[in-house]
Design a protein around this nucleic acid. Structure first.
Length: 586
DNA sequence: TGGAATAGAGTTTTT
DNA sequence: CTCTATTCCA
């Protein structure tokens, strides 16, 4: 992969590196190059490179870029979210030493935790949207200034404990606790991982820094650090994401003496776009220069000019125009700050443009079940063994094998190849999606000599999987369709116009970006406005707008649509910053 | 009846 | 927090 001089300097830097740079300057490109370089330079057979980020989407981005640009033996690198790292490398192997975990545990998913919290809030006379903090800091303290919020949090922990469940926050805290209790964990990890790479570091939480720093600080042979981020894109502050300065990183990773780099060139967008979105940038970083000299392209803002009921038609027209002008479906992305309007938009767009393909993850009836064993199996069941999916399917098959051996303690000589062969040979007449999957799972269990009667955990996952999917299908006014064709279309090679949340497309780029819902209360969210000093809302707002506008390479269409109403019936207004930004729009 | 005090509306992103 | 509507009281 070709690197600029700035990027090469960072990638080839001896020692530790911290890079902050503007969007589109090739931070992730440099990171993947560094990972590949690190892998080549690994000294011992058992050494690995660790690459962590905050979201699954960002982790998958790293994996795909590595797969596309380099040939790396899969065992030489571990890439994923910090949560999954803590689970796989600390909690699972050492759970028996942890007092809260040694009696057994499983992970509570979002459905369960939200249900418990909502019930407790109602009992205490709090409203569903009153905020309850559940994140631990490194002292193990969960800060809630409100008395009732604190009580809710404590009772919530009791309920989880009685069910032998841990939530996402506890998975991090117990991992950190274990590392404090047993220094050998950090020693072992630092012996395995000779390099630690962190992408999108501005979204990392306090406890996550603490875990990574512990590995570094306790090690005898210091791993090298390669840390990449952009404080101006820190849009996870609301859930504890924290951007650190170079000095703070140096203090965290003791004696790391990190070299600082920044990239000044933008390889993504036209100069006109770079100038446009630079206005939303905070204090960090200088002006960036676009490599593309052309000032063509479009920046449009439909400020209260389109009614929300005509919005889908307007966006469909834009899409049609783009496609007629030679853009491909993969060049276009439609984003909004919240999922609810995205779902209805997706549905309308699909109806309006029946021949256009969309990549819209929100339509899966399985969302919220990432960790379910059967979700991975259904990915295989619903995809064809061809094209780019070939290598991805092998990855999924290996995940299934890992689950079977680690979580369910099956010791068989099953290989990924055999598993794929079994699932590929499954055939069924049914057109009903969930029925098709059920048949396929039973076929697979049968072929592999497994059965649900003797395996309680696998059975529990099996039941939950269908229970939640069915509930999604039944309760959402037909948004989710239970047909084999619909389910297959969800997992098929992700091509088509991306429809996603602003958070979801962070780190990605598109020739044409169409953003809607740019309204005060969405951008920034009410919780950044209510009971907050004005600067909190302004910061949150400029970061979100910065992320949104900087996704675009050539064309940016912005909508602050008219006609959306709050629960009380008041109209939503254009987001403050956009309203105040005087710009010569097309 | 005018000015001050109080109440109410506005509710997401991710693991 | 900010904006608006309502209530309170002299």
């Amino acid at each position: 992969m070709k690197l600029s001089i700035e990027q090469q300097a960072a990638v080839n830097c001896i020692g530790n590196a911290y890079i902050t740079a503007c969007p589109g300057s090739g931070k992730t490109r440099a990171l993947t190059a560094r990972i590949a370089k690190n892998v080549q330079e690994l000294k011992h057979r058992n050494n690995k490179v660790l690459a962590v980020t905050f979201t699954n989407r960002a982790a998958n981005e790293i994996k795909s870029r590595l797969e596309e640009n380099y040939t790396i033996e899969s065992g030489r690198i571990w890439a994923g979210t910090i949560h999954s790292f803590a689970l796989e490398w600390i909690i699972k192997p050492y759970a028996s030493y942890s007092p809260p975990l040694n009696a057994g545990y499983s992970i509570a998913d979002e459905f369960e935790t939200r249900k418990i919290l909502n019930k407790l809030k109602a009992d205490k006379g709090l409203r569903v949207f009153d905020e309850i903090n559940t994140t631990f800091n490194r002292q193990g303290v969960v800060e809630n200034s409100d008395r009732r919020a604190k009580e809710v949090e404590q009772e919530y922990r009791h309920i989880l404990k009685s069910r032998k469940k841990i939530d996402f926050d506890q998975s991090l805290y117990f991992a950190f606790q274990l590392m404090e209790l047993i220094p050998e964990i950090a020693h072992t990890l630092s012996n395995i991982f000779s390099n630690i790479c962190i992408d999108e570091v501005q979204d990392t939480q306090d406890l996550q820094y603490a875990i990574l720093a512990k590995i570094f600080n306790e090690s005898f042979h210091k791993p090298t650090l390669f840390i990449v981020g952009d404080g101006n894109q820190a849009i996870y502050g609301g859930i504890g994401g924290k951007s650190l300065s170079l000095a703070e990183l140096n203090a965290e990773f003791i004696g790391s003496n990190i070299n600082y780099f920044t990239f000044s060139d933008n390889y993504r967008s036209t100069q006109r776009l770079v100038d446009y979105f630079s206005v939303f940038r905070g204090v960090q970083g200088g002006l960036s220069k676009a490599e593309h000299k052309n000032n063509q392209g479009i920046i449009s803002f439909f400020n209260q000019a389109v009614d929300k009921d005509q919005l889908a038609e307007a966006i469909a027209e834009l899409i049609k125009g783009e496609l007629n002008n030679g853009s491909s479906e993969n060049d276009i992305c439609v984003i909004a700050p919240q999922w609810a309007p995205i779902r209805s938009m997706t549905k309308k767009l699909i109806a309006l443009l029946p021949n256009v393909r969309f990549d819209a993850p929100a339509l899966s009836p399985f969302h919220g079940q990432h960790d379910n064993f059967w979700l991975i199996v259904s990915k295989l069941a619903l995809t064809e063994p061809s094209g780019r999916l070939l290598s991805v399917r092998v990855r999924w098959a290996n995940e299934i094998l890992n689950h079977l051996s680690d979580v369910y303690h099956h010791t068989s000589e099953l290989t990924a190849k055999k598993l794929l062969k079994v699932i590929n040979s499954f055939q069924s007449e049914t057109r009903i999606g969930t029925e098709y999957l059920k048949e396929c799972f039973e076929f697979m269990l049968d072929e592999l000599d497994l059965d649900l009667v003797s395996d309680v955990a696998l059975k529990e996952q099996f039941d939950l999987f269908f229970e939640k999917a069915t509930s999604n299908i039944e309760n959402n006014n037909g948004q989710y369709e239970d047909s084999v064709v619909a389910l297959k279309s969800f997992f098929k090679e992700s091509t088509g116009i991306v429809v996603n949340s602003c958070h979801g497309v962070k780190g990605e780029e598109y020739k044409t970006v169409i953003a809607f819902g740019l309204l005060k209360g969405f951008i920034p969210h009410w919780s950044d406005i209510i009971n907050q000093p004005a600067y909190v809302g302004q910061n949150a707002e400029s970061k979100m707008l910065y992320v949104i506008a900087s996704r675009a390479k050539e064309k940016l269409y912005l909508f602050a649509e008219y006609g959306r109403r709050t629960q009380g019936g008041n109209p939503y207004e254009t987001s403050n910053l956009l309203n105040a930004y005087s710009y010569q729009y097309d």
